[in-house]
Design a protein around this nucleic acid. Structure first.
Lengths: 346, 346
DNA sequence: GTTAGCACTCTCGGTTGTTGAGTGCTAATC
DNA sequence: GATTAGCACTCAACAACCGAGAGTGCTAAC
């Protein structure tokens, strides 16, 4: 079905993709020649276009319109016509500089990463926080706030901090809390939540309450971890003609909120530094049929990782997007590595 | 200019507002009579409509269309024709029940409050977290995570928890951290951030670093506190015909993100249990000209308060919205009072 | 004060032309 | 054999037009 393409045909396909991505309008034979000063005639281009259409790389919205890339056209483009795009060095410096501003604040870094991605691509940036597949306890602390109210602070392996207010049946001194926490901390360090839950049964009173709560917090995050996702750049993306139609905005919001996005795409991005591209109909989910998604995994180690990427219309600037996703994921990984392993100052 | 209205004129205005809010279509004299079985003729209604139009309560989109309420029409409606709407008891029970599920988790309660508001009004719910106008330190804790990495946890008067990772120049033992924190805690309890910043100058090394960081955290939240806002129900709201037009979605997103909303409206809602309504052109901000906003202040005390409310098109069900905002703000205040003053179990 | 009657106005939805970009095919040309 | 010129054809997009229907304001009668 799909045979080899001549050099000129590949060139034409490349130009069509780029032109269409830029303008958003179907590309005709004459317009293509005018704009890119090809030294062949429209008819020749039309012949080649005919071939490309036969090979399923292009399609016709209607008889008298220009050609538009199909999903497989984009796929061919990113795979064979794109090379290995790099973020320009000046841009790299600018990005690194921005990250150096936020220091070691994980939350701020993530927001920044999203902002950079959104900015560079003009589309929607996605990012999920770094999580361990199997979270364990690193440390917890009990703080007495008032007679019968205390605060539980939990730090897990991935460096995430959780908090919960606990109401007690009877007043407890801070000293009691401190000794309890010191003792329990030693016992449950590096344990995952099922183990903790089991141990809670062996205790009663304060200790049991605390252990139960810790287990509950961890269980909850484990369940949420796939769904939790921050997105950025939606309002700018909506300015694009693709999205100007009314209910697309609503559809997009639901897509982002629902998080079906991550739960479907997450398993497909296997390891750190792996970058995956999903174009239109390649997406299993119906809602994603008309979008393109670029997703990469980032993280400090192979254990604790998060995802980041870009979501846009199938008509998106894949070159810029891909290079930016790849670069930002590297920067973020570097940064996390500093937090997780006492790395050198940068 | 605006004189008295006859009983029938008020009735007609009320019906027009309600009908228009429900259907979204300009209301004609005949349609009004048909739908509400008035025992007067269309011509009479037309005469009254004429009067209402002269009084600026109604307006004509064009010659041959029905009437539509103006902003002052809505204003008259909420002030004179609405009474004091209450949430139906069954609804009250449902809401209370939902809140009892989330226990004392402040963050979860806020999300729930937003969800309830959005649900009841079909519009966008707004909520800003409870903050004190003048935050003071309640307690902080230092936790050593690794040789040269420690975690700072800060609890402020309003019950908000902040966290920050701190990198140290040289390794410090947990014991050192504990004694330092115990000592400093006593010293800075109940102080606002400028005082803390001042004291940090008197110390050096670890203590100085910690105090500076605490001051920085508090300063940052103080600045952000006006801007921070959670919103809910956007995607559902976009389903409404008012919002179906393309770029309204974008405009709304920017409005919500920018937080111009709160920084403008916040100062106008003076104290707890105060409920304010802004209709269309009554809003100073241009972006808000075609929206209606209902905002109430909630909180545990007069010191620590937050805002919640509803944003929708000027054409919104004011009765339901007002009663729900008022009720939810009460429920949330009750709940916060439990967290802040060791209240009885509920 | 209320109502019937009537001429008038203006949006909305569908139909109809017109325009222009683009195509596919064939025959001539390099 | 690949390329090109020429030409008839197609179809979306846009504007102009038209009739139907809902609603109005006014006047005169009740």
């Amino acid at each position: 079905m799909t045979g080899e393409l001549s050099a000129r045909q590949r060139k034409i396909l490349k130009l069509i993709v780029q032109d269409y991505v830029r303008t958003g309008r179907a590309v005709g034979s004459k317009a293509l020649i005018d704009r890119y000063k090809l030294d062949v005639s429209p008819a020749t281009v039309r012949n080649d276009m005919g071939v490309l259409e036969e090979q399923t790389y292009l399609q016709h919205p209607h008889t008298s319109a220009g050609r538009v890339p199909t999903d497989s056209g984009y796929r061919y483009y990113v795979e064979h016509l794109l090379g290995n795009p790099r973020v320009p060095v000046s841009e790299q410096i600018r990005i690194r500089h921005q990250f150096s501003q936020v220091e070691m604040q994980v939350a701020a870094s993530m927001k920044l990463a999203a902002a950079v991605l959104a900015e560079a691509s003009g589309n929607i940036a996605l990012i999920s926080p770094p999580r361990s597949l199997r979270e364990t306890v690193r440390h917890f602390e009990l703080i007495s706030l008032r007679d019968r109210l205390m605060l539980l602070i939990l730090v897990t392996q991935s460096g995430t901090v959780h908090e919960a207010f606990l109401h007690l049946d009877e007043p407890v001194e801070q000293d009691t809390l401190s000794t309890t926490s010191r003792q329990l901390n030693d016992e449950i360090r590096d344990l995952p939540f099922p183990d903790i839950q089991r141990r809670s049964a062996q205790y009663s009173g304060l200790a049991a309450l605390v252990l139960e709560q810790i287990a509950a917090l961890m269980r909850r995050t484990e369940q949420e971890s796939t769904a939790e996702m921050h997105s950025e750049g939606l309002e700018r993306a909506l300015r694009q003609p693709e999205f100007s139609h009314g209910d697309v905005a609503q559809q997009l919001l639901e897509l982002l909120r629902g998080g079906a996005l991550l739960s479907v795409l997450l398993p497909q991005v296997r390891q750190k530094d792996d970058l995956r591209i999903f174009i239109g109909s390649e997406n299993v989910t119906d809602d994603l049929q008309s979008y393109g998604v670029i997703i990469a995994r980032y993280g400090a180690t192979n254990e604790v990782t998060g995802l980041l990427g870009i979501l846009g219309p199938t008509r998106m600037p894949y070159d810029r997007s891909i290079s930016t996703v790849r670069y930002v994921s590297q920067v973020l990984s570097d940064l996390l590595r500093h937090v997780h392993t006492d790395g050198p100052e940068h």
